[in-house]
Design a protein around this nucleic acid. Structure first.
Lengths: 334, 334
DNA sequence: TTGTATGCGTTATCAG
DNA sequence: CTGATAACGCATACAA
C-alpha cells in the first residue's frame, strides 16, 4: 500500500507538497499540482484516515447505536441520519444492541476507542450510567427516541405521549372500555411516555388503564397476548407498545381464533409503511422516523461544530392514522 | 483525553507495560497488573484505535455497502452480518448507495482511506470497474446479492434463477398466459437471473416472456404499472423484480381500481415478514436474507484470516411462499 | 511556492 | 518481568 512518501518520490517533490495537494491545493503551482496528480493516479494513492485523524484529533465518524435495525422505524431513522451525514462527509459506524445493555456497553467502548466525533443513540433498557463515559469525554451525544436518566443531552423523539393519548381516545370513542397497553420495557422513556398518554386518556374517560409491560419484539407481543388469554384477561382493545409487538399480538390472536377488529381491537405506534401499502390495516400513532434521523444528525453536527449551549429537546408530532384494526364492530355496522 | 503515557505515569510504569496490559496481560507481574488496572480505571483510559491500527495495519473494521437500507431484505442482511461481525470483534461501517454508482464510488474511496479490513457489497447498477480499486489493494471483498462483471470475488446470493422459475411455473399452473416481469435494473445480475428463470419457465410453457425493467423502488413499480395500463398492456399476471416494486404495483393497481388477484395476479421476490404476519398476501420467492448476511461475513472472515484460495460461490435456496396475490380467480372458485 | 523537523498515540524490537 | 527507542503515515509550524 503506497504512502504519501511514495507519491512524493514518484512526483519528485516532498511529502508536504503531496499533503498540500489534498489540504490546500490552491497553494500549489499548476505544474507541481499536475505532477502530484498523476503520481497519485499511477499509485492509486488514498490517504490513510487513521494517520490523518491521529493528528487532527477528528475522525469524521459518527456512531449510530440502535436497539433493533430490523424494525422499519429504526431503519428509517438510519436512512435519515445517513442522508445528512453523507452530505457533510461523515461516516457512520453502526451498532445494534438488540435491547441488551451489555452489547450497548460494548459498543460504547468501541466507539470511544475509535474516537468517534459524535454519538447518536437509542439506549437499551436498564441503568445506562455507562453512557456517562462518552459524555464525560466531551463527545457530543444525541439521544434519539429515548431519553436517558441523568444524561442531559440533546434529544429527538416523537410526541408519543400525545400519540398514546389520541390512540386511546380514539379507542374510547369507539366504545371500548376495557383497554390494555401491552409490551415495551419498564423504565424506558419511550414506554413510560406511551403509558402516560394512555393512562391520561383512560382516566379522563373514567376508565381503568391496564398495563402489561414486556419487550419490544414480536415474540413479546405473542407471549403477552397468549398469557392474557390463558388468564381470561384479554381486553376489548389492545394498544401495543410498538409495531413489532402489535404484529405479535395479531399473530397470537389469529392463532387463538380471534378476529381483529371484530373480536378484539388493536392499535399501536410506529407505522410499517410497506405493510400498510399492501393492506392498510393497523391503526397507528406514527412517528416521523426519517425526520427524527435527519434532525438528530443536524443537532449532532451543531455540537461537533462547537455549539455548546443548553441541550435541546426536539419533540416531533405523531400522526394518528386510523385504519381497520381499531374500528369497533358496532361502529362498522352503522 | 488521556493517553497511554498518562496511564504509565499514574501507575509509575512505562508505556510499554500499559500496552502489555492490553495485549499480553499474562506477562505482567500481578502487582503491576493491578497498579495499571487502577490507573486505567481512574483515568478512564481507552486505547486509541487509530494509533493502534497505524502500527498493526489492521482496523478490525468491515465496510457494508448496500443500495437500500430501507428494504427489509437488506436490513435482514445487515442483521446477519452484524451478528457475526460482533462475535469476532469487527465493527461495521455502513454505506447506503441508493442504487447510485456515484455514491458507491464515494463510499469505496472512503472505505479505502479508512483501510477497512474487508468489504461486503451489493453493488449499484452500472459499470462497477471502480470496485477494482478495492480488489487490487488486496482488500478482501464479498459480493452479496449481486455479482459484478470482471470481479472474481466470493459471492453470496439467493438462487433467484430457480426462484423466478418456480414463481413463474406457479403462475402458469394457475392458468395465466400473459405474464410480465417488471422493475429491476438492466445489467444487474440480480435482475438478469430473475429474468432468466422467468424466461425459461415461460418458454418451457410455450409462452412469450415480457420484461419491463426499471428500478428497484416502490415508485418504479407504480410507474411501470401505470404505463402498462395506459398503453393497454397490463398482463394477466405480474412478477415484480423485488418486494418494493411489488408494493408499488399493488398501489398503482388499487388506484386504477383493479383488484389483486381477482383482476390481475401478482408475485415477487424477497418476503416482507412483518407485512406477511399482518396479512399473508404477497406470493414470494423468499431469499434467506439473514443467512446470506451471516455467510457473507463468514466468507469475509476467512479471507481476512488469510484464506487465499479460489473464490467461493454460495448459492442459497429460495423458498416459494404461495399466498393470495397469485391465486387465479378460477382456481379460487373451485 | 516548496521543504525540514517534529509529534500525534501506540506497539515491535531489542535490551536489561 | 520491564523499559528505551524507533516507527506506523500524515500534517503543523516554521524556514527557505
Amino acid at each position: 500500500m503506497s504512502t504519501i512518501l511514495d507519491v512524493a518520490q514518484q512526483a519528485g517533490v516532498s511529502a508536504m507538497t503531496v499533503s498540500r495537494y489534498f489540504n490546500q491545493p490552491e497553494r500549489l503551482a499548476p505544474a507541481t499540482y499536475e505532477r502530484v496528480r498523476t503520481a497519485i493516479e499511477q499509485l492509486q494513492y488514498v490517504p490513510n484516515a487513521a494517520a490523518r485523524s491521529l493528528i487532527s484529533g477528528r475522525t469524521k465518524t459518527v456512531a449510530l447505536i440502535l436497539t433493533d435495525i430490523t424494525n422499519p422505524f429504526y431503519t428509517t431513522i438510519v436512512r435519515g441520519v445517513e442522508d445528512i451525514a453523507q452530505q457533510h462527509d461523515y461516516t457512520l459506524i453502526l451498532g445494534n444492541t438488540d435491547e441488551k445493555l451489555e452489547k450497548e456497553r460494548c459498543y460504547i467502548d468501541i466507539m470511544i476507542s475509535r474516537r468517534v466525533d459524535g454519538v447518536i443513540i437509542a439506549s437499551a433498557p436498564g441503568n445506562n450510567h455507562y453512557l456517562q463515559r462518552v459524555f464525560r469525554r466531551g463527545i457530543p451525544v444525541v439521544l434519539i427516541d429515548r431519553t436517558v436518566k441523568d444524561i442531559d443531552a440533546d434529544v429527538v423523539r416523537g410526541d408519543i405521549y400525545t400519540g398514546g393519548k389520541r390512540l386511546t381516545e380514539h379507542l374510547v370513542n369507539q366504545g371500548f372500555q376495557d383497554i390494555a397497553l401491552i409490551g415495551g420495557f419498564t423504565g424506558v422513556s419511550s414506554l413510560e411516555e406511551r403509558q402516560a398518554g394512555f393512562r391520561f386518556a383512560m382516566e379522563a374517560a373514567g376508565l381503568t388503564p391496564k398495563v402489561h409491560p414486556g419487550r419490544t419484539d414480536q415474540l413479546s407481543g405473542e407471549e403477552i397476548t397468549e398469557r392474557l388469554w390463558k388468564e381470561g384477561k384479554l381486553p376489548e382493545a389492545i394498544v401495543a407498545a410498538n409495531n413489532h409487538v402489535a404484529v405479535g399480538a395479531l399473530v397470537a390472536l389469529r392463532r387463538l381464533g380471534l378476529r381483529v377488529p371484530e373480536d378484539i381491537a388493536l392499535a399501536t405506534f410506529d407505522d410499517i409503511e410497506s405493510a400498510a401499502a399492501i393492506y392498510p390495516f393497523l391503526t397507528v400513532a406514527a412517528q416521523p422516523a426519517y425526520d427524527m434521523g435527519t434532525q438528530a444528525m443536524e443537532l449532532l453536527l451543531d455540537r461537533m461544530q462547537g455549539y455548546a449551549g443548553p441541550s435541546r429537546n426536539r419533540l416531533l408530532p405523531t400522526e394518528l392514522i386510523i385504519r381497520r384494526s381499531s374500528i369497533a364492530p358496532t361502529v362498522v355496522a352503522h
